[in-house]
Design a protein around this nucleic acid. Structure first.
Lengths: 354, 354
DNA sequence: TATCTCTGCAAAATCGTGTAAGCAGAACAG
DNA sequence: CTGTTCTGCTTACACGATTTTGCAGAGATA
C-alpha cells in the first residue's frame, strides 16, 4: 500500500479511503490512486484487514464426509449463499469423529471465522457452549445440538419414516425390516423411532435394527431376514448409503423387487428413477436445507444476534412413490423427462408432510 | 496474549516463546504460562500469526460444482491431505464460469493463501501467469492449463475412451454414438477425439457429437439416433452426468440394453453394478487424482519450488467390463460383495492402461 | 478583515502476533 | 578478581491494513 501511495504522491490513508470508497477524496486524487493500484497490480491484504476489523468475512463448514451426496449438496448450497454475501468458506471434514470435529472447530476459532455451519458428529457437544465461542455464530444442519441456544435446520425424520413405513403397511406388508448405518447417529435414532411408531400403531412388532456398515454386512442381514421361517416381506433403508447397500444385497441374493420383497428408503438417489424397479423414497430438500442454514447464519452475523434460544427450522419431506414399494409392477420412467429427473414420482402422486 | 502474560507475570515475548516451544524458557515459567493460557482459554490469533509470518497455512480449492461426485471426491481427497499437513482448505465453486473463477482466484490471492488446486473452467487462463501470483503455487486437476509451467494431474482421456470404444467394436458394433455434455470442456474434447480415433482406426465414420445438456436433450438425441434408417447399435456416454442422462433416455424410450443398444461410459457410478444391466465403464482413480494433486502442491509449498516447467502426472484408467456392453446377458452382481462394491468387474476381467 | 466551517490529506495509534536486539544475573574459565 | 558465555526475560519494531486525530488551506459568513 505504501508503494501505491508513493507512486500516487499521497499518503497511505488516502489509498485506504479510495479503496473503501469513503468520501473526502477529490476525484483527481482518487483517479491517480486508482491508476497506481492498477499499475502496481496491488492486492490488498485481507489478513491485515481482518486483523484490524475483527471480522474475517469467512465462515467454516464442517461436514462428516464430502463424498456423500447429501453432505456435498449441503456444502454446495452453503458455499453458494456465502459467495453471494461475499464470504469465503473454509470447508473441513470431521470423518464423523467427535475429536476431529473439536480440533477443527478450535482451529476455526483461532482463525477468527465469523460463523460456522456444522453437521455435528456424535459425541458430547458441550465444548461448543464454552464462552470462548461466544463470538462465533453456529448453525447446525441435519442434526441438532443438545444445547437449545444453537440454531438448527432439520427435517422430521421420524414422521418421514413413518409416512414411508405406513405406505408399505398399506400394501399389506406385516413384517417390515429397518436397515441403518451408524445407530448412534441422531438421524438413525429418529428414523428408527418413526419406524417403531408406525409398526406399533399398526399393532405389529418392530424388527430389531439391522446395522449395515458394509455391503457384506448388508448381504448377511438381508440373507438372514429372508432365509428364515418367517421371512420379511418389506425392507426400509434409512439413508442413501444404506439404500445402495440394500440394492447391492438384493442384487447379490437375486431377490425379486417388489415381488419377493418390497423396499423404500430415506434419501432420493439421482438414479432412483432409472433403477429396476424405480425406488420409492422419502426425499429431503437437500439443497434447501443447506441454503436455509446459510441464510440463518448470515442473519445472525449481520444482526449480531446471540439469542438465548435458537431457532429450529424444520423443512418438509416428500414421499416419492415409485415402484419398489409395489405400487406398480413394471417400473419404467415416464416420457416426461424433466419431471422424472427432477424426481417427481412416475407411478403415483407424491405426498408431502412437515 | 497480553492478558496471559500479565496473569503469568511475564512479558508477551515469553508467552510467544512457550507457544512456539522454543528454548530459553525455564520450566517453572513455562508452567505458569501454560496455566494462564488454560485459565483464560487463550486462543492465539492465526490471522495475526499469518500476517507476521507471511504464510497462512491455507490452500484454496476451486471446483466447478460440488454436487458432482467426481469433484466432491477430489475435494475430499485434497481436504484430507491438507488436514494431515495442518493446512485449512478454502473451497469455492466456479460454476464452470471463467469469470467467477477469476474473481475467486483473485480473492484467494488477497487472502494470501499458500497454494491453490484448481479444476479450471474453460476460458483464457493467462491471467494466472500474471506475476502477482508468483508467490502462489498452483496445481490443476482433471484439466491442464495452456501455460506449461503449472503442475497438473490428469488421465489419458482419449486413450481411455479409445479402450472402451474398441471394446464395443470388439462386440461387432459398427455404428457407435458419442454423448457428451459441454463440448468446450477439455475432457470432452479429448474423449471425443479418442472416440474418433478408435472409429477411424476401424475404418468407420465417427458420428457427430451428441450434446446432452439436459435429460430431455438426451431423450431427443437417443430417439433420433435409434429411430432412423440406420440406427446406432451402441452408445458411449462421456462422463457420469451423461451416463445418467443416457440411462434416463433409454428408460423413457424403453430401449433394451444391451440387446437393442449396447452402452459404455466414462466414470464409474457408485450404483453401476446394481443397475440392470450393470454398466461397463472407464473408471478414473478419483480419490487418487485429488490426493496426487494435493501432494504435488504441498511438495511445491514445502520446497518453495517455482519451476519453469510444471510436472504432469497421468494416472491410470481402468476399463471395468460389466454387462451393458453385451459381455453377458443377465447382469447380476457376484456374491463377492466387497469386490463388487469396490468396483471390480463382475463379468469379465478388467483391463488397465496408462 | 477576522472567524468559522469544510475539504483533502498526513501522521500516529491500533489490531495480535513473531523476531531481533538488548540487558540483567549467574556460572565459569583464566 | 575480571572478562566471557549462557540463561531468562524485556523492550522495540515489523507485518499491512483501518481508524482517529489533527492540521493546513480554501471558501463562506458576519
Amino acid at each position: 500500500m505504501a508503494d501505491v501511495a508513493r507512486l500516487a504522491g499521497v499518503g497511505k490513508m488516502t489509498v485506504s479511503r479510495v479503496l473503501s470508497g469513503s468520501a473526502n477524496v477529490s476525484d483527481a486524487t482518487a483517479d491517480r490512486v486508482q491508476r497506481a493500484i492498477r499499475l502496481l497490480n496491488y492486492q490488498p491484504n485481507e489478513l491485515a484487514r481482518s486483523l484490524r476489523s475483527l471480522h474475517s468475512k469467512t465462515i467454516a463448514v464442517i461436514v462428516p464426509y464430502l463424498y456423500d451426496s447429501f453432505f456435498a449438496t449441503c456444502a454446495h448450497a452453503i458455499s453458494t449463499v456465502a459467495k453471494q454475501h461475499g464470504y469465503s468458506v473454509i470447508l473441513t471434514t470431521s470423518d464423523e469423529e467427535h475429536e476431529t470435529e473439536q480440533r477443527q472447530t478450535n482451529l476455526m476459532v483461532r482463525r477468527r471465522i465469523d460463523g460456522m455451519v456444522i453437521i455435528p458428529a456424535p459425541g458430547d457437544d458441550k465444548y461448543l457452549r464454552s464462552e470462548i465461542y461466544s463470538r462465533v455464530h453456529i448453525v447446525t444442519l441435519d442434526r441438532p445440538l443438545a444445547d437449545p441456544r444453537f440454531d438448527s435446520v432439520l427435517v422430521n425424520n421420524s414422521a418421514g419414516t413413518k409416512m414411508a413405513v405406513e405406505h408399505l403397511l398399506g400394501h399389506g406388508h406385516r413384517r417390515i425390516g429397518f436397515l441403518g448405518v451408524g445407530r448412534e447417529l441422531y438421524t438413525m435414532k429418529a428414523r428408527y423411532a418413526g419406524y417403531r411408531q408406525a409398526m406399533m400403531r399398526a399393532g405389529l412388532t418392530a424388527e430389531p435394527y439391522m446395522e449395515c456398515r458394509t455391503p457384506e454386512k448388508a448381504v448377511d442381514q438381508v440373507r438372514a431376514a429372508l432365509h428364515c421361517s418367517e421371512p420379511l416381506t418389506a425392507l426400509f433403508a434409512a439413508n442413501n448409503l444404506t439404500t445402495r447397500y440394500l440394492l447391492h444385497a438384493l442384487n447379490v441374493l437375486r431377490v425379486e423387487v417388489p415381488g419377493k420383497v418390497a423396499t423404500a428408503g430415506f434419501d432420493d438417489l439421482d438414479v432412483a428413477d432409472v433403477l429396476q424397479p424405480t425406488l420409492t423414497v422419502v426425499r429431503q430438500p437437500v439443497y434447501q436445507i443447506g441454503e436455509a442454514a446459510a441464510n440463518l447464519l448470515f442473519q445472525r452475523i449481520q444482526r449480531q444476534e446471540f439469542p438465548s434460544t435458537g431457532r429450529r427450522i424444520v423443512l418438509p419431506l416428500q414421499l416419492v412413490v415409485r415402484c419398489s414399494c409395489g405400487c406398480r409392477e413394471s417400473g419404467t420412467a415416464s416420457e416426461d423427462g424433466k419431471a422424472s429427473m427432477a424426481g417427481r414420482d412416475s407411478c403415483a402422486p407424491a405426498r408431502s408432510m412437515r
